[in-house]
C-alpha cells in the first residue's frame, strides 16, 4: 500500500506542476490553458531528440525549455491581441482550438510512438521504511513545490507581480496606469511555459510515454486546478498530489484498477458539487 502511495507521489507531482501552471495562467491571464501539458511535451520531446543526436543533457534541455517558452509566449500574445476583450466562452473555445492545433503539430513532428527521454540521475534512489523512493519522484515534487513558492513570491512581493495581478483584475485600468500589457502578458505565459517544460522533462524521464499520453496529463492536471478552484496555487498542488495518490491506490485491488481512469473525474465531480452548492448568478447584472 505504501509503495503505491509513493508511486502515486511521482504522478501526483506531475499533475501538481501542470495544475499549478494552469491556475497561475488563469489568475493572471484569464485563460484556462488546455495546452499546458502539450506545450511542455514539445519542450521535453525536442530535448530528447537533441539528446539522441548526441547533445549533452543540459544543453538539450535548455533548448527544449526555450522552445516551450517560445510557444507559450506566442499563444499568449495571440490571445492578448485577439481575445483581450472577449468573454469567457470565446476565450475557452479559442484555447481549445489552439490545443487541437498544438496536439496535431506535436504528432506531426514527433509522431505518437513512445520514445525514451533521458533519465535524470539514473538509478538514484533510496529506501524509506522499506519503500524505494526514486530520485525522480523527489525531483518532481521539488519542482512542484518550487513552482508554487517562486510563483507565490513573484506575485506577492515584486512590483512586476503586482502589475500582473492588476492586469488580471482590471486590464484597462492597469493600462491607463502605464503598465505595459504585452510585456507583462508575455512574461506570465513565458513563465508557465518554462515551468511546464522543466516539469515535463522531469516527468517524462520518470513516466515515459507517447507525445499524446504526456499531453493528456492535462486531465488530472485540470482536476488539480479545479481543486484549487482555479485560484489557489497551494491547493492545486495538494490537489494534484491527491489525484496521483488516489489513482495509484485505486490499483490496490484489481477490481478497482479498472476505474483508475475515472479518478480525476470523480474527484472533479465531488469538488464541483461542493463548491457550486449555492446558487450563483452569471456575472453581468
Amino acid at each position: 500500500m505504501l509503495t503505491l502511495v509513493v508511486a502515486g507521489l511521482a504522478a501526483g507531482g506531475a499533475y501538481a506542476i501542470f495544475g499549478v501552471s494552469i491556475v497561475v495562467l488563469h489568475r493572471m491571464a484569464g485563460v484556462v490553458n488546455f495546452s499546458q501539458a502539450v506545450v511542455g511535451a514539445f519542450g521535453a520531446y525536442f530535448a530528447a531528440a537533441l539528446y539522441d543526436r548526441g547533445w549533452n543533457f543540459l544543453s538539450a534541455a535548455a533548448v527544449g525549455v526555450a522552445l516551450s517558452v517560445a510557444i507559450s509566449v506566442a499563444v499568449g500574445l495571440l490571445f492578448a491581441r485577439l481575445f483581450s476583450e472577449a468573454d469567457g466562452a470565446v476565450r475557452t473555445g479559442a484555447m481549445i482550438a489552439v490545443t487541437v492545433g498544438l496536439f496535431a503539430a506535436g504528432f506531426r513532428f514527433f509522431s505518437d510512438t513512445p520514445r525514451s527521454v533521458p533519465v535524470i540521475l539514473p538509478g538514484a534512489s533510496f529506501t524509506v521504511g522499506g519503500v524505494v523512493v526514486t530520485a525522480g519522484t523527489i525531483i518532481v515534487l521539488l519542482v512542484a513545490l518550487a513552482t508554487v513558492l517562486s510563483m507565490g513570491w513573484v506575485l506577492s512581493s515584486t512590483r512586476v507581480g503586482t502589475q500582473v495581478r492588476a492586469i488580471s483584475e482590471l486590464p484597462v485600468v492597469a493600462e491607463l496606469l502605464g503598465v505595459p500589457l504585452f510585456a507583462r502578458t508575455a512574461l506570465v505565459w513565458g513563465f508557465t511555459g518554462l515551468v511546464s517544460a522543466v516539469g515535463m522533462i522531469v516527468v517524462a524521464s520518470n513516466l515515459p510515454g507517447s507525445f499524446s499520453s504526456l499531453g493528456f496529463l492535462i486531465f488530472p492536471a485540470m482536476a488539480a486546478a479545479l481543486i484549487g478552484a482555479f485560484r489557489s496555487l497551494s491547493l492545486a498542488m495538494v490537489g494534484g498530489i491527491l489525484v496521483g495518490v488516489v489513482e495509484a491506490v485505486s490499483s490496490y485491488r484489481p477490481t478497482w484498477a479498472e476505474y483508475r481512469g475515472a479518478v480525476p473525474f470523480l474527484i472533479a465531480l465531488v469538488v464541483l458539487l461542493w463548491t457550486q452548492r449555492h446558487e450563483v448568478w452569471d456575472a453581468a447584472r
Binding site: H26, T92, F216, F219, M222, A262, P264, F265, L266, D282
Partner: peptide, 15 residues
C-alpha cells in the same frame, strides 16, 4: 457555466 463546465466535460470524456 463557461470554464467549469468545459473542464468538467473534458475530464468526463477522459474518464
Amino acid at each position: 457555466r463557461g470554464l467549469n463546465l468545459a473542464v468538467f466535460t473534458l475530464v468526463f470524456s477522459a474518464a
